[in-house]
């Protein structure tokens, strides 16, 4: 069994088969005390899943669901994809340098390999946007969820503490990508013009892309870490998931507002608004 405090008096508890969200109320509750002992891939995976799930639920409180997906809204999501993927390689290289300097070669190797794996994924988003009729300048727009995520990622990579938060960030976004199955890809395809290939970035970051093996690699790595570090990563997963699921302070833009934002970078021959 593994457990970790995730803030607000809550503790996520995991076995090989289950994850629970526990609120210890009794002073004799054993889950008031820090986790001890080694992890295993099965329990560590459940622990991180429970932390991500708790973060998603907490972040969504008081929010409003986004409007239905259209081709215009898919372009907006691609702008977000661009911001998330563009920032990744350089921050992972910095993370590797800091893990190496801290005498953590296994963690440094993980970050170095991931930096290589994730290089040029931003070009997938640019190609998809181009196919939808948008020039690359559209990525100068500020996608609030992506900006919040990248800010958190940067702070974890460049902050004073050992950048364990980067492992949490990577695992959270890659685990969430696995929720996007073939049906989710088809749902996006359905709002795009027939034959459109503007789902390349989505396919890579989905259950039918490379993120499947990345998630199991992340879990195997985290399971080898000391209990305090596994707990810290679980807490960070909860925070990242909370950022991802919350409605931006400014609310959701509707298609008309998005089209107005996109206008300077919209090519006249694109013609694929939903």
């Amino acid at each position: 069994m593994e457990w970790a405090a995730i803030g607000g008096g809550a503790v996520v508890v995991a076995t090989e088969a289950r994850g629970w969200l526990h609120h210890p109320a009794n002073p004799m509750d054993p889950f008031h005390f820090p986790m001890k002992g080694p992890g295993t891939p099965a329990t560590t995976g459940r622990l991180l899943d429970a932390a991500i799930a708790a973060g998603l639920t907490a972040g969504a409180v008081g929010g409003t669901p986004p409007p239905p997906l259209t081709a215009t809204r898919w372009a907006w999501r691609l702008v977000g994809y661009y911001h998330l993927t563009h920032s990744t390689p350089a921050l992972l290289v910095e993370t590797a340098r800091r893990f190496d300097a801290a005498g953590r070669p296994a963690l440094a190797a993980w970050a170095t390999e991931k930096a290589a794996d994730e290089t040029a994924h931003d070009r997938l988003a640019l190609r998809d946007l181009d196919e939808l009729g948008y020039d690359a300048g559209v990525t100068s727009l500020r996608h609030p969820t992506a900006v919040a995520m990248v800010d958190w990622f940067r702070a974890a990579a460049e902050g004073d503490a050992l950048p364990l938060g980067v492992i949490a960030y990577a695992h959270t976004v890659e685990r969430l990508a696995l929720t996007l199955d073939a049906a989710a890809v088809d749902a996006v395809r359905a709002v795009l013009p027939p034959g459109s290939r503007a789902i390349r970035c989505l396919r890579v970051h989905s259950a039918i892309g490379s993120d499947v093996s990345h998630v199991s690699d992340n879990i195997r790595l985290v399971a080898t870490l000391p209990a305090a570090e596994r707990a810290a990563i679980a807490l960070a997963c909860r925070r990242v998931a909370g950022l991802f699921s919350r409605t931006p302070d400014e609310g959701h833009l509707d298609d008309a507002a998005l089209a107005a934002l996109f206008r300077p970078w919209r090519r006249s021959h694109g013609g694929q608004d939903g």
Partner: peptide, 28 residues
């Protein structure tokens, strides 16, 4: 006397992700 904590509710990503209130896709 020993106290058995009340059984908490299950949590899982596959269920929780359906509550997303953002307009973003997870990428890295």
């Amino acid at each position: 006397h020993f106290v058995l904590p009340a059984k908490p509710g299950d949590v899982g990503v596959d269920e929780a992700h359906q509550s997303l209130m953002s307009d973003a896709n997870p990428g890295f």
